[in-house]
């Protein structure tokens, strides 16, 4: 690895100053499980690593049933599913948080990092899209919010300016009769990158789908929000036929490539299978959540 410097700001303000000074030749590190690998591979040409783990706001988890969840960008995965209130309120998020990497990676990796890394295969992004999440960003001119589905702008590219830092993620409080699920397909049972993934959420109303959101991993340059899949089934009964409609739309919306992890055909096929299975689980969860 070429020489880098290392900064440990203790406030968001300080971090923004350091980033501004670095003029785009810096990246923020949370758990480092993606960043250090990318630096060794020469993916980023930077001079400075800014460690976000000493900034209080990046390490906080706050949840209440009215305002929802605010999750510091550097909170490691194990602390998310270790938080009973969060685990109960957002099982669809926990699905993803508990399958990113193995035990050792879970001690470091964060959902903020997963989002900023902005790979198409990021497991936590589809469920956060499905759960209507937003990213809280701080910069020299104050704070701004970006919807999760708008955050990734290309492969490993995101909406952050070079002088901005992702402070936290926000998910609205779950409403009654709602349910969510994220599943991915990997060839092994652990330690793999998603060949494809599906994150979905539904809200039921007397046995009908009131609202649904579908998002896919690993089948486009960015995590894909398939709004038309959810829109097409709003108002329809929560049954196999409805689920099939949405999963068919998801399959058709996928724009995968063929690479070492899967072919175009296999990934399109998986989008249908995974969306169907995830919707069925989300509907079951919604029925239990009343």
């Amino acid at each position: 690895m070429k020489w880098i410097d290392y900064a440990t700001p203790h406030s968001v303000r300080e971090a923004v100053d350091v980033l501004s000074e670095a003029g785009g030749r810096a990246r923020v590190m949370a758990g480092g499980t993606d960043l250090l690998v990318a630096l060794r591979a020469g993916v980023y040409d930077i001079d400075l690593v800014v460690d976000g783990k000493n900034i209080p706001e990046l390490n906080e988890i706050t949840y209440d049933p009215t305002n929802g969840l605010t999750l510091g960008a550097a909170v490691p995965c194990y602390k998310i599913y270790g938080n009973q209130a969060v685990a109960t309120a957002y099982p669809g998020l926990i699905d993803a948080a508990s399958l990113i990497g193995g035990t050792q990676i879970q001690g470091r990796a964060s959902l903020g990092g997963n989002l900023c890394n902005a790979t198409p295969s990021a497991d936590s992004i589809p469920p956060m899209i499905a759960l209507n999440g937003t990213a809280n960003i701080a910069g020299p001119n104050g704070n701004r919010q970006v919807a999760i589905e708008d955050f990734c702008t290309g492969v490993r590219q995101n909406a952050l300016g070079s002088d901005e830092i992702l402070v936290s993620l926000h998910l609205p409080a779950p409403v009654a009769n709602s349910g969510a699920n994220y599943i991915r397909f990997i060839p092994r049972n652990e330690m793999d990158i998603a060949v494809a993934g599906a994150g979905v959420s539904v809200v039921l109303d007397n046995g009908d789908i009131k609202e649904a959101r579908v998002s896919l991993a690993s089948v486009a340059p960015t995590p894909l929000f398939v709004q038309e899949a959810g829109d097409a089934i709003a108002g329809k009964p929560a049954n196999d036929e409805t689920v099939r409609i949405a999963s068919g739309i998801a399959r058709d919306a996928a724009r995968p490539i063929t690479d070492m992890r899967g072919t175009i055909e296999f990934r399109q096929h998986l989008c249908e299978v995974l969306t169907r299975r995830a919707l069925n689980t989300a509907i079951e969860r919604a029925k239990e959540n009343n």
Binding site: Y6, G32, L36, D51, P76, I105, G107, R108
Partner: peptide, 13 residues
């Protein structure tokens, strides 16, 4: 108190 892969931690951390 938590296991990590030390190749993905910087020494300065």
């Amino acid at each position: 108190g938590r296991i990590v892969t030390s190749c993905l931690v910087l020494g300065v951390e």
